[in-house]
Design a protein around this nucleic acid. Structure first.
Length: 426
DNA sequence: TCTGGGGTCCTAGGACCC
DNA sequence: TCTGGGGTCCTAGGACCC
């Protein structure tokens, strides 16, 4: 049986979601002016997380440094991201999508796939996609693109066609006209490096790529990638919509310094910081890690990375940190300035049985107690942060609770006065 | 202009074993 | 003494995604 897959993609997600919030609070709709969302606007190293359509028309793009965008347009509106709000918007978005089909795969905070094969019942998939798009817009106040196709790849390619607020199809019989004329870079999994390599051999469009044999392609990229590129360029993809949430395979944290640092004390402090974050997260999720990796980025952006296997899996901050410290000593001379340090863990397990080791660190009890206190302090800070968030955002419609309150987000209700009327009549 | 943060997967080479 | 081939595990590095 042929499949019908939707790919739903929030248009400029962080920007749209921020706009919904600002409009709710009575501010201007930043979607209508050149604007961007960035991490910390005061940090000259911060980059753009999302840009409005008017900003994109000026050439301002995600991942561009804020300083560069300001050169293009000094009066650019820059707003700060709000993760708590984004999570709620995402939950509301996913909840509405799920009501159209339970076979849903969340692909990122602002994208998901729906397997609609059993849900169309003879109706035109485009009508259903349009209804979904309109429902999200009217109930949550932001727009999405829906791509409709016979598999995940084509659905995702289709959602990337003209934006915003559009439904597009990409069926097998449309591949030749709609997909083959596109540049290779538009194909999923073809990034900058692969594009360069392909173009160097005169392969410019997805259609060019589709005409190559796997054998020819293997000479340009690895055999595994070649086989996949060949299938994808021809519009084929048999991967299922995965409803199971995959467990994490690794955790990592990194910090880029406001200024490059070369004092070993500063570097160690940063390494300590990222170790605390990563170790806390694996304890929170009940993991232990057998492999610790550490990486530094130099001022020229080159990266050095080391990883090491531990004798046994651990979630103890001190053990992870000390492994990272030893590796840092291997790659860094303690003199040249560093731009960034990072730490990761992998080879995760939920096993709790611990082998008694004759060589166990005598300070182990102390380490564990330290971690316990750290986790408690962190939980408290988290509660306080959420409480402060609730206080600061009394009008938060809890977009996750779409049935009761999401209508507050509707752009029609977004004027401040309307919001107050709503409260009074409740 | 001067480049964040968090992930996944693949490849290649070396060590080690049979 | 010299020769081989395959399998697995580990590490470093690279490419891609949002």
């Amino acid at each position: 049986m042929s499949r019908v897959i939707f790919h739903i993609d929030v248009n400029s997600a962080f920007l749209s979601w921020t706009a919904v919030k600002i409009v709710m609070e009575g501010g201007q709709d930043i979607r209508e002016v050149p604007s961007v969302v960035s991490g910390d606007p005061s940090d000259r190293r911060s980059i753009i997380a999302a840009a409005s359509m008017p900003a994109k028309k000026l050439g301002i793009r995600a991942a561009m440094p804020v300083t560069m965008a300001l050169r293009i347009l000094p009066q650019l509106v820059i707003v700060h991201g709000d993760w708590e709000w984004y999570k709620r918007c995402s939950e509301g978005f996913i909840a509405i999508c799920r009501s159209y089909s339970p076979v849903l795969q969340q692909f990122s905070i602002d994208e998901c796939f729906l397997d609609m094969s059993l849900r169309c019942g003879g109706r035109d998939p485009v009508d259903i996609a349009t209804r979904l798009k309109e429902e999200i817009k009217s109930r949550l106040g932001f727009t999405v693109n829906v791509g409709v196709g016979p598999n995940k790849l084509l659905a995702k390619m289709a959602s990337d066609f003209e934006k915003p607020d559009k439904v597009h199809t990409l069926w097998e019989h449309e591949v030749r006209d709609k997909m083959w004329p596109l540049g290779v870079r538009d194909l999923l999994w073809v990034g900058k490096k692969t594009e360069e390599r392909l173009v160097a051999y005169g392969i410019h469009t997805i259609g060019d790529l589709a005409c190559l044999s796997v054998g020819q392609l293997t000479r340009l990229v690895g055999s595994k990638f070649a086989a996949q590129l060949h299938e994808n360029a021809n519009g084929r993809d048999d991967s299922p919509v995965e409803t199971e949430v995959q467990e994490a395979k690794s955790y990592s944290a990194e910090r880029t310094f406001a200024k490059d640092l070369s004092d070993p004390k500063d570097i160690d402090r940063a390494l300590f910081h990222v170790a605390c974050i990563v170790a806390h997260r694996i304890r929170r999720d009940d993991f232990r890690a057998s492999t610790v990796s550490m990486f530094v980025k130099y001022t020229d952006f080159s990266v050095a990375q080391r990883q090491t296997s531990l004798d046994q899996p651990t979630d103890v901050t001190a053990l992870i940190l000390n492994a990272a410290r030893r590796m840092l000593a291997e790659v860094w001379d303690g003199v040249v300035p560093l731009r960034q340090v990072g730490l990761g863990v992998s080879k995760l397990t939920h096993e709790t049985v611990e082998q008694m080791s004759l060589f166990e660190d005598p300070k182990m009890d102390y380490y564990r107690e330290w971690d316990r206190q750290y986790d408690a302090a962190r939980a408290q800070a988290e509660d306080a942060r959420l409480l402060a968030y609730e206080r600061k955002n009394p009008a938060d419609p809890r977009v996750a609770n779409v049935e009761e309150k999401a209508y507050l987000c509707n752009t029609d209700h977004l004027k401040k006065n309307d919001l107050q009327d709503t409260h009074e009549t409740e």
